[in-house]
C-alpha cells in the first residue's frame, strides 16, 4: 500500500509539472508585449524597457518559467496587472468560497444520486428505471447556465424562496451564505445527480448478474442481505471513484454556475482575469484549479485502492 501511494504521489507531481508547463506556455501565446499591455499605448520606450527588466521579460523563456514555478511553490504568486494588489490572498479567499459551494453540492447530490441509481438498477427496465434514465439523459446534456436560469426563474422570481444573486462578502460566514448557496448548488446537483445515478445504475446491474449473487440468493439469504452485503459493496466501488473524479466536471461547472449567480468564487475570478487580460492572475487561478483537480484524482485512487485490494496488490 505504501509503495502504491508513493508511486501514485510521484505521478501526481509529474502531472502537475507538465500541466504547469502547459499553463505557462499558453500564457506565452499572447500576441504583443506584456509591458505595453500594462503601461498602455502612450508609454515611453524607457519606461517599457525598465518594466521589462523588472518583470524579467528579457530573460529566455525557460528561465522565466523556472522563476515563475519556484515563486509559485514558495507562495509568491506576484501582483495582479489589473488590481495592482497581491494575488495570493485574493485567490485564497475565492477558493474558500468555491469550496464552500462544492461541499454543499456534494452533500446534496451524492446521497440522492446513489439512492436513485440503486433504485433504478434494482428495477431494471421497469417504469421507475425508465423515468430515472430518461430524466437523467435529458438533464445531463443541458448547459449549466440554461438550467441555472430556469431555476432562478422558478425559485427566485416566481416563488421567491431563494435570492437570484449570490454575491456574498468575504466576511460572510457559511451559515449566513447558505440560503444563497442553495440555488447554485441545485443547478450543479441536477447535472451531477444524473451522471452519478447513471453510473451507479450500471454498476448495480452489472453486479446483479454475477455468480456470487446467485449463490447468495440460492443459499437462502434474505433479499435485503444479498443487496446490502453483496451487491452494493461491490457496485458502489466505481461510484465512489466517479464522485472524486467528477470534481473535474465540478470545476468546469462551477466556472459557469458562479457566473450565472454572481457568486464570488474562483470561476468568476477566472473570467474577470480573462476580461482584463490579467495573465498572472489567470495563471494563478488555473494552477489552483488544476491542483484541486489533481488532488481529487489522487483521493479517488487512494479510495479505490482501499476498497479494492486487487488494485493495490496487483
Amino acid at each position: 500500500m505504501v509503495k502504491y501511494l508513493l508511486r501514485r504521489f510521484g505521478f501526481l507531481i509529474l502531472t502537475l509539472l507538465i500541466t504547469s508547463m502547459v499553463i505557462f506556455a499558453a500564457t506565452q501565446l499572447l500576441p504583443g508585449d506584456v509591458a505595453r499591455v500594462i503601461l498602455g499605448r502612450e508609454a515611453g520606450e524607457a519606461a517599457l524597457q525598465a518594466l521589462r527588466e523588472e518583470l524579467g521579460l528579457n530573460d529566455p523563456v525557460p528561465v522565466q518559467y523556472g522563476r515563475w514555478l519556484v515563486n509559485f511553490v514558495r507562495g509568491d504568486w506576484g501582483k495582479s496587472y489589473s488590481t495592482k494588489s497581491e494575488i495570493r490572498p485574493l485567490v485564497i479567499g475565492r477558493l474558500r468560497n468555491s469550496l464552500m459551494l462544492a461541499v454543499v453540492i456534494l452533500v446534496i447530490s451524492v446521497p440522492v444520486a446513489i439512492f436513485l441509481g440503486v433504485v433504478a438498477g434494482l428495477n431494471e427496465n421497469k417504469w421507475i428505471d425508465n423515468v430515472v434514465s430518461i430524466a437523467s439523459l435529458a438533464v445531463v446534456g443541458l448547459p449549466e447556465f440554461v438550467t441555472g436560469l430556469v431555476l432562478i426563474q422558478i425559485f427566485a422570481f416566481r416563488l421567491r424562496w431563494f435570492p437570484a444573486n449570490s454575491s456574498i462578502r468575504p466576511t460572510t460566514s457559511f451559515l449566513e451564505a447558505l440560503p444563497m448557496l442553495i440555488l447554485p448548488a441545485l443547478t450543479a446537483t441536477l447535472v451531477l445527480l444524473a451522471y452519478i445515478a447513471r453510473l451507479t445504475r450500471a454498476g448495480v446491474i452489472e453486479e446483479l448478474k454475477q455468480q456470487y449473487v446467485r449463490t447468495a440468493d440460492l443459499k437462502g439469504l434474505p433479499y435485503r442481505v444479498v443487496i446490502f452485503k453483496h451487491v452494493l459493496r461491490n457496485a458502489l466501488i466505481p461510484t465512489i471513484t466517479v464522485i472524486a473524479i467528477s470534481m473535474g466536471w465540478l470545476i468546469s461547472g462551477l466556472i459557469v454556475i458562479e457566473n450565472v449567480f454572481n457568486y464570488p468564487g474562483l470561476g468568476r475570478l477566472m473570467v474577470f482575469a480573462i476580461d482584463r487580460r490579467d495573465l498572472p492572475l489567470l495563471q494563478a487561478v488555473t494552477m489552483v484549479a488544476v491542483l484541486g483537480f489533481a488532488l481529487s484524482n489522487l483521493l479517488a485512487d487512494i479510495l479505490y485502492a482501499i476498497l479494492d485490494p486487487r488494485i493495490r496488490l496487483g
Binding site: T15, T19, L30, G248, I251, S252, I274, L279
Partner: peptide
C-alpha cells in the same frame, strides 16, 4: 506526453486559459 499535459486539466479550464491569452 504533450497531449497528457494538455488534457490533465478540465477542458473548459484549458479553453478559458487559451482564450485569456488569445483574447475573445
Amino acid at each position: 506526453r504533450i497531449f497528457d499535459g494538455l488534457l490533465a486539466m478540465p477542458l473548459l479550464l484549458l479553453a478559458l486559459l487559451l482564450l485569456g491569452t488569445l483574447g475573445p
